[in-house]
């Protein structure tokens, strides 16, 4: 600290700009590139209705005559041009990707939030309360880790779909997908939070809070949570990449987003049917988008992990 304790404290913005974090970021070209790609894709997804040339979810906008138009080529019947071509139904691929990105990101972000909520709560309770509850939670976590998370997600997906009445299935498909992926990814959050909680709860500020008679829940929520949340944000970024890929995998296998509301994974599944008959663009463009998204989120997560954990350097 260069300022003496009795000068005016710097504003929040000044503090952020002067932080090591921002300094490190401006010196990591790969992180800047990854952040730019992620920011761009998020922005496009959020602004989809304004950005996309057509609404691919609206059957009225589709013209079957436009089917299989290659990119940047005039259609031989209608004369229309499409930047990324069209799929078998004559759907504009660029619009489908933009809307698909939206579905993929929504599912990814929501399932990470769900996994984070479950994992952080269970980790806090396991670490702070301890005893048999700790054992129970962590053994469940251990058991879940012995299965690949995509299998867990498929299991949960199947069970949830069985519970939901058939006429609601398509409407609920996205939320079932979120629940399935969220429930399959909570373990890393719980483990990390438990470990940091075990360290924090022995610190004297927690004992001071116990002395004034705060209840366990208050101590966990107000005192310990703010001190264990740092590593959680790193895991959340890495899990986001995993969740996006998990969603794509499920949709690719045909158990995820319905064809009426295609995500990137659904588009890739549709595209791979036509790869060997020469319509390469239907597979390639969604796949490249997914690759760029997952890779950028992962790079960003890796950079965050290295930067926020100086011991790894």
């Amino acid at each position: 600290m260069t300022h003496s304790p009795h000068t005016a404290p710097p504003t929040r913005l000044q503090r952020v700009l002067a932080s090591d974090f921002v300094f490190d970021f401006t010196r990591a070209p790969l992180a800047i590139l990854a952040a730019a790609v992620v920011a761009f894709l998020f922005l496009v997804a959020i602004l989809a209705p304004a950005v996309a040339p057509t609404n691919p979810f609206d059957p009225a906008s589709l013209n079957l005559m436009n089917g299989f138009t290659p990119p940047m080529t005039d259609n031989m019947f209608t004369g229309e041009r499409f930047v990324m071509g069209t799929d078998d139904q004559g759907r504009d691929l660029l619009s489908a990707i933009i809307y698909g990105l939206r579905v993929s990101l929504f599912v990814g972000v929501m399932s990470v939030l769900l996994a984070m909520g479950i994992g952080v709560s269970l980790g806090l309770v396991a670490g702070y309360v301890g005893g048999w509850l700790d054992n129970l939670i962590m053994r469940i976590a251990d058991i879940q880790l012995t299965f690949p998370s995509i299998l867990i997600a498929m299991l949960i997906f199947g069970v949830l779909r069985g519970i939901i009445p058939p006429d609601l299935r398509d409407e609920m498909a996205i939320f079932v997908l979120i629940a399935a992926i969220g429930l399959s990814e909570w373990v890393p959050f719980a483990r990390t939070v438990r470990a940091t909680t075990l360290v924090e709860k022995e610190k004297e500020y927690v004992q001071a809070a116990r002395l004034i008679g705060l209840r366990r829940g208050q101590i966990m929520w107000r005192h310990i949570l703010p001190n264990v949340i740092g590593p959680v944000l790193v895991i959340a970024t890495i899990t986001l990449a995993l969740a996006i890929i998990a969603e794509a995998t499920l949709s690719f296998l045909g158990v995820g987003a319905p064809p009426t509301e295609p995500s990137l994974g659904t588009l890739i599944r549709i595209g791979q049917d036509y790869l060997f008959s020469g319509e390469w663009w239907i597979l390639t463009f969604p796949a490249v988008t997914l690759l760029a998204l997952a890779l950028s989120v992962n790079l960003l997560g890796d950079w965050l992990k290295d930067t926020l954990n100086p011991r790894l350097r």
Binding site: K203, Y205, A208, A209, L211, N227
Partner: peptide, 29 residues
């Protein structure tokens, strides 16, 4: 009953402003 702890580094919650730290017992009681 109150207690002053040994380590001045771990006895104050690093995420709380000093004003909030002092306010907490006043509110809790």
């Amino acid at each position: 009953l109150q207690m002053v702890f040994q380590s001045p580094y771990s006895s104050l919650n690093p995420r709380w402003r000093v004003g909030d730290i002092l306010m907490e017992p006043i509110r809790a009681f």
